[in-house]
Amino acid sequence: MVTVPVVAVGRASLAFVGEMGAMLIFLLLGMRHMCSSTKQLQRVLRQVHVIGAGSFFLIALIGLFTGMVLGLQGYYTLTRYGSVGMLGSAVALTLIRELGPVLTAIMVTGRAGSAMAAEIGVMRISDQIDALEVMDINPYAYLVSPRITACLFVFPLLTAVFNVVGILGGYLTGVQLLGVNQGVYFYSIESSVVFADVAGTFIKSVFFALTVVTVCCYKGFFANLRQDGMGPAAVGNATTSAVVLSCVLLLLVDYVITSVLL
């Protein structure tokens, strides 16, 4: 009786590790076909449009408000220590090192990742993936690879947009609203942000892209194997699970990469 919770935790852990392994194999199968034919380019461009262009304004909006809040919070915190001149640096480093890649990835997960899981899940339960197989069209090449390639392009670009718009948001509150000197704001950014910070933001966004696209495609692709529902319910559960697991793994991956980069 005492061992029951331990057994349950052990089973859950084994299942989690097993699923992570399955997802890694899924990712490798998808990556294997990334450059398999010239026809992939068209599919990649379509996904870039769906994931990237479709998320652009959302990312810009979130970036703007995040920067504005950072500007406000940073101003009042730094004022206490007489270091308001460091506002630009605080906003930029917070965005570039941490919030930019993480919030971009979470936003894209919510908007495009959930759509990926749902679309592929519906294709699975309505025999469309089976239809691809019997037409001798590799579903990994057709559905997964273009999304991986597109995410590898789109995540860094959207992260860059988030960072730039966020810094402008900080400028709006810090400089335009609260009166910090414009030159000081930008000089502190220029003097504190180094190449390693920018490289770090892109490295993180690439890892986040792989995490999100793998989890979301995997959950949709195997929606028919879920134990917690059948048919449309399975697609709904797969989508929820894709978003939740992506967000959790993003933060886990973020911690690991940050600890390696620092």
Binding site: D127, A131, D136
Partner: peptide
């Protein structure tokens, strides 16, 4: 195996046309 599959045409229950 793949060559053999190309020799088959399959009509699924609801057509299984790709929705996109």
């Amino acid at each position: 195996f793949r060559r053999m599959r190309r020799r088959m045409g399959v009509l699924f229950q609801d057509g299984a046309l790709l929705g996109s």
